[in-house]
Design a protein around this nucleic acid. Structure first.
Lengths: 203, 203
DNA sequence: AAATTATTTAATCAAATGATTAATTTCTGC
DNA sequence: GCAGAAATTAATCATTTGATTAAATAATTT
């Protein structure tokens, strides 16, 4: 055993490399990640990285597509669901994000910072924006508050959900223990929908 | 003229390099930035970078300290001011952030992503957290809402202010023009304090 | 103005890094 | 069990990249 990661046990070499790449890229970013770091993390020979994925860049593109999907993929089905109320959507989105981000706290900062350093190639890969304007969600928002651009509420919802994870390295020292940080994020699952409803119905 | 940046005109070589480094590091991140990029941006010979700053790493540390100060330095004086009301603080913080971030939109994602990729060295450089707990701001928050951890409100305030800039590359395509993006951010100067007050007084 | 110091430049170095190669081992189909 | 294919390895390559050097130029001092 020793250094072998649990999930790595029965994965194929290709999957091991992709897993390792995801870990290393997410932790350090593309520019700070070394193919040798990835090979070591995966426990494989460096040449295998190029054997299976041709290049660091190609491997990154594959990992990045998966990470973008993981971060924004949850949105589309919820936003487009005409059978749920606006309140239910707010609750679903929050619940999904908090649960997912507690498991992958550095996902948002990774995706957003990589998009920033390469916007022309990556920004258009995010699908959610494209469906947004025609979504049931936006329609419901406009019905409820016709005087405020619905994007404000979307920014607030995503901000309250994602920001505490984006800023985790700064917030953690304030909050003290990792455990207390988790506690607060769990509290927010109930609080964020309440706050969103307040903003929608007052002011 | 041509490619010469306006601010660069009468700066000393040392200042030109620091300015260029700030631009290049902020746009690409440490790992993707090349000392040759910085030299070119500054319009100076590559060797001068090492002549004035010893190394890329040292130059980065200097730039980073300034960027952290720019992003979080505005907080301490406002948070500690016992002479202003909580509502005034919310308005001041929001006004300061929106104005500053419209000029430096990629500042938050830069600082936060660099801290993520090197937390042990950078996270403790942020001063704001240290003074936070003893601040007038936190006291006022606890007075107003004793049943909710004041950090929730701080997260929401920073999230609503910083997140739209952190996520700018993703949001921009939805909003369309740069001009419309600016418009929305200006709107938020009035909206965010209103929303914060709502959260504090209801729910 | 001469001497000294500071700045700038072109050329070069050494290490890091992504990628390839050729040989070896393991697996698969027959 | 064997032949061919696939996977793996150690060694090496070529380029990039941060940094240095020695010479040239500019600024400052006396």
């Amino acid at each position: 055993m020793a250094k072998v990661k649990k999930a790595e046990l029965d994965l194929s070499t290709e999957e091991k490399i992709k897993e390792a790449a995801s870990i290393v890229f997410t932790k350090k970013g593309y520019g700070n990640a070394r193919t040798r770091d990835i090979a070591e993390e995966a426990g494989i020979n460096l040449a295998l990285l190029n054997y299976y994925f041709r290049s660091k860049e190609k491997l990154f593109q594959i990992v990045m597509a998966e990470r973008i999907e993981k971060l924004f993929g949850v949105l589309a089905p919820i936003l487009n669901d005409a059978s749920t109320t606006l309140d239910e959507k707010l609750e679903k989105i929050t619940e999904n994000y908090v649960d997912m981000l507690l498991e992958h706290p550095d996902l948002p900062i990774f995706v957003l910072s990589e998009i920033r350093s390469n916007p022309e190639q990556l920004a258009n890969r995010v699908q959610a924006p494209k469906i947004l304007k025609e979504s049931a969600f936006v329609k419901q928002l406009m019905e409820r508050r016709s005087d405020i651009n619905p994007l404000h509420f979307i920014i607030n919802l995503l901000g309250m959900n994602l920001f505490p994870f984006v800023a985790k390295p700064v917030l953690q020292p304030i909050l003290g223990s990792e455990d207390f940080y988790r506690q607060m994020m769990v509290q927010r699952k109930k609080l964020i929908p309440v706050w969103m409803k307040l903003m929608l119905d007052h002011g």
